[in-house]
Design a protein around this nucleic acid. Sequence first.
DNA 1: TGTACATCAGTGAACGCGCGTTCACTGATGTAC
DNA 2: TGTACATCAGTGAACGCGCGTTCACTGATGTAC
Lengths: 192, 192
Amino acid sequence: VTRYDREHKQRTRASIVDAASQAFRGRGIEQVSVGEVMAAAGLTHGGFYAHFDSKEQLVAEACATALLQAASSKRTLPEYIRSYLSRSHRDGPETGCGLPALGGEIGRHTPDTRQRFTEAAQTYVDRVAELLPEGTDPEDAWALFAGMAGTVMLARAVDDRELSDRILLAGRRVFARAFRPEVEKVQEEADR
Amino acid sequence: VTRYDREHKQRTRASIVDAASQAFRGRGIEQVSVGEVMAAAGLTHGGFYAHFDSKEQLVAEACATALLQAASSKRTLPEYIRSYLSRSHRDGPETGCGLPALGGEIGRHTPDTRQRFTEAAQTYVDRVAELLPEGTDPEDAWALFAGMAGTVMLARAVDDRELSDRILLAGRRVFARAFRPEVEKVQEEADR
DNA sequence: TGTACATCAGTGAACGCGCGTTCACTGATGTAC
DNA sequence: TGTACATCAGTGAACGCGCGTTCACTGATGTAC
C-alpha cells in the first residue's frame, strides 16, 4: 500500500533544491535560512528533514544545480561571452551562473559539497571547451570561465552602475581578444 | 589631562581592523564573529564598541584594507600575473588579495561598505593599469584584475589540488596572451 | 460504487546555541600638586 | 621626588534574536474490501 503517487516526494524535493539554488545565488548561502527556502517552495520549515539530513546536504545539491542550470550551451563563443558578461546576467544572480555568486563560499564548505561543485564545474567547462577556436588548449576554458565569473562578481560588487557597465565591457574586450581565432590574428596583422 | 599617549587608541583600532581583514579573507565575513576578531587582536569582545559603531563599520574598513594591502606594486606585468596566480596566493587567502576572498559578499553589504570597497578597487586598478603594455586600453586593467581574482577563487573552490594547479596555469597562459605587448605579437607572426 | 483505514508528507511548537550589541564596572595611566 | 586622583581603554555578564534541528502530531491520499 503506497500513499501519494510515487514521484510526489521527488518532485517536492526537486522544488526545494531549486528554490534553494536561486535563493543561495541571490543572497548567499549563510544569509538564507532553511525556513526561507521551505517557504519559497511553498512549505513549512519542519518538513525539511524528511528530505535532507542537514542544511549542508541541501547546499551541496543546490550549488551543483546552480552551475549545471547555467551550463545551457550557447552555440558560439562570442555569443557565450556576450551573454555571460551582460547586464542582465549581472542583475539577475538568482537565475545566473553559480560561480560568481557562490564561488567564494564553496571553498569553506564540507568536502562533499566541494566535490559535487567540482564535478559540476568540470561538466560546465567541458562544454565551454567545445566553443574554443581550433588550436586552443582546452584547459584554457577554465581560465575563460573563471575569468568571466570574476568579472561578473566585481561588476556586482561595485557601487557605481556606470563603472560596473565599463567593467563588463572591458571583460568582453579582453576575453574576446584572448580567444580570438588564429585566422583572425593573422588577418589582423596583414591588415596593417 | 589626557590619559594614555595620544596614539594608543588609534594603534589598537588599527590592529582590530588588521585582524578583521585577515580573518574575513580567510573564513568569510559572516563566519567571523566580533568576539573572534577582538580575541585575535588580543582584546575582549566588550571593548569593540569603543572603536566602532557596528560590525558593519568594521567590515567596510577591513574590506578596503584587504584590497589596498594587496595593491603593493609588482614592477612588471608578467611578475604581477605570476604572483597573483601562484600557489602561495591560492593557499594564503588571509594575507592575499581581498577580491577573490570577499568579492562575492560585498555586493550584499551596505552602501557605505560597497562604496569604500569600490574606491579601494579603483586605487588598485589604477596601479595595475600602469603595468599594461603601451597601446592597451587602461580600462582593460579591470578585466585583468577581476579575471585573475575569479581564477584564484575557482582554484580555491575546487576539491582537487592537481586540477586547481592546472586552473592557475591556464590563467597564466590566457592572461599573458591577452596582455602581450603588440611588439611581441608582430614578432610572433614574423617568426612563422 | 461506497466506506473504513493504514500510510507518511507535511505541520508547527519547542530546544539549545552563538551571534551582535549594551552597560555597569575596573584598573592602568601619567599629570597636578 | 612622592602621592592623590581624574580619565577612559578595556572587561565580562547579560540581553534579545534568529538560526538549525527535533519531534509529537495531523490530515489528505487512494487502496482494500
